[in-house]
Design a binder for these strands. Structure first.
Lengths: 355, 355
DNA sequence: CTGAAAGCGCTTACAG
DNA sequence: CTGAAAGCGCTTACAG
């Protein structure tokens, strides 16, 4: 019984075929890659003879060597600032990865996950140790919430081809990204609220300032302006869910707010909890819409008025843009915004008479 | 404002670094691969100078070229016979991948997912086009249910280092694998049943003959033998869930069977459904234990007596074995069986008096 | 129509 | 301690 890993046997190479057929390797290559631009023409009988030898010897080209000769690696990198397969916080990257894999599959690329870039303790870095770890791949898709954009700027400066999933802004370089249309989706919800009779609409966003949040807030503000609605500074609040004070909630209620836009489900749930302590409910005493949705829509999520983020499509589109750049199809900076999907739910209540 | 990828600049190569640092490429290579057997010694200050240039230029070695030249790439391949991130059939590979990533993380390897090996329509192949696609990686972990072992044999014959998650047998070569202890876990359930008073125990396995199933059946048979229990051929049945005839179920009941071992939850549910049509229930009229468990234990699964497959640990262990082989630590064929975890549930009922 | 040669970017004996 | 050279297995201009 043969055991794995004993001695290495030599494989049949193109040179073997060429020798056996009495031609040069260039001819063999030309026959096996008919529509390449080598300018090499081969006679019909020669081609047949070579093919026969290929068959006899069981020759198959070495894809590694093909890649090297073609100057391409056929490897797409996937870099995440957090582990790809976390155990606790759900599979955050899963939908995007699924999109990435679906799109890349059949395009002739393999996917390199940069797991080794993970320093113990600290978060992962692209330039760990000083050199660009992504360099092994032809280009990369970047995922993650990392707010620090200096690595991205350096990467862009080095002319490394990459596309970010999620909008990311830099003053220094124009980045390539695929974003979700948070602004439009948020505007849409404000308009929906307006149509349902709401005139005092508040916004509750996360404490950290990220592009995502800016987009949502901008969508909120532009819709408010467009509809000529009242806009008190107090009605725009930035806070982590845990840090929301009951006073703020009761405050805006007292000021006549009837609809609250909450950036995350956690924000919405926290507000509902606060209301509950005063025996108030959603949506009877306050309509609430969530500006996004969790990875998997749980049954508990169904009732919330919200929108869904096209995570899978974002992954697909990122690959499309990246490969387009590698092929030289896409020229300038590539930035795509994909629309979110509105889900009516039951927490945005009509308050202007019958439906 | 600098734009990403305006002109495609040539990637930095080892030669660039060598030129800039005023050394030969051999020296650069030696510095970047310290413990390789090139016999090349480099002075401390030279090494530091080269490292600095590497940093400045953002150089990263081309793994394709490294592969061709026979060097180490610090890349572990992950090959799956089905897409890694499927949309429909749940994330089958997820627990194993999580284990793989956890284990590989910090070991200095990156993970290469072979997505390109996917032919349109047909299932993926390692030797698509006749040549080993896995060659870019130092070694690979193989996942999937593929019963055809010819590719595995060829891979082993070529001396490519790989470890399979799941036991896989070949008459020609001894394969490396990490398996779940289905046999022991099944024996354990039979013993448990015996202790609860069951003497007539039947086995219901899948229609296809795979190592997994053989292991379970062997565990069943060995326990039956050891306990001196009756063992009618009719009590061992191989069938897909849908193909189970009500006659078989009523038949074994009539013959006095009180406990049925079902390979999958689907088998168990199908049997329960059949029983239900005669107003019989599990476990009052028949105890049923499931020989495994689905990926995520759903609430509906809780009541079933079953065992859990250590999927995550299997992934971890596969990486451990593979890296051990690459490092030359593990010598011969490496085969590990990890124990399953018994979950009591409520569908295996005591029938010999009070507990 | 075909061959000899250079080159893709590395590693590894082999000489100094 | 360091460099020049061969070689991994291909493709692709460049000459005949």
């Amino acid at each position: 019984m043969v055991k794995q890993n004993t001695s290495r046997t030599r494989r049949i190479t193109q040179a073997d075929v060429a020798r056996q057929a009495g031609v040069s390797t260039a001819v063999v290559s030309a026959i096996l890659n008919p529509n390449s631009k080598g300018g090499v023409r081969v006679g019909k009988e020669t081609a047949e003879r070579v093919r026969e030898v290929v068959r006899q010897l069981g020759y198959a080209p070495n894809p590694i060597a093909q890649s090297l000769a073609g100057g391409k690696r056929n490897i797409l990198g996937v870099f995440t600032y957090e582990p790809v397969f976390p155990s606790n916080r759900g599979n955050f990257f899963y939908p995007m990865l699924r999109g990435i894999e679906m799109q890349v599959s059949g395009m002739g690329y393999d996917l390199l996950l940069f797991t080794s870039a993970q320093d113990t303790g600290t978060s992962r870095q692209i330039f760990g140790g000083g050199s660009n770890r992504l360099g092994v791949a032809d280009g990369a898709v970047l995922l993650g919430q990392e707010p620090d954009s200096s690595e991205l700027e350096r990467l862009a400066t080095e002319n490394y081809p990459f596309v970010i999933v999620g909008r990311r802004h830099s003053d220094l370089v124009e980045l390539n990204w695929v974003a979700a249309g948070y602004a439009d989706a948020t505007s849409e919800i404000v308009h929906q609220g307006h149509q349902f009779g709401h005139r005092q609409i508040a916004f509750l966003g996360s404490g950290t300032t990220r592009e995502q949040q800016l987009d949502r807030e901008e969508g909120y503000l532009s819709a408010i302006r467009k509809l000529g609605l009242e806009n008190r500074p107090r009605w725009r609040r930035h806070s982590e869910p845990d840090a929301i004070e009951p006073e703020w909630v009761t405050g805006i209620l007292a000021e006549g707010v009837t609809l609250l836009l909450a950036e995350t489900p956690e924000h919405a749930q926290r507000v509902e909890h606060i209301l509950g302590e005063s025996d108030l409910t959603v949506p009877n005493d306050l309509s609430v819409a969530v500006l996004g949705s969790p990875l998997e829509d749980s049954p508990a999520m169904e009732r919330w008025t919200r929108f869904q983020i096209p995570r899978e499509d974002m992954g697909r589109e990122a690959v499309r843009l990246l490969v387009g750049q590698l092929d030289g199809q896409v020229a300038g900076p590539a930035q795509t915004t994909l629309p979110c999907t509105f889900v009516p739910g039951e927490t945005l209540r009509r308050i202007n008479g019958d439906p």
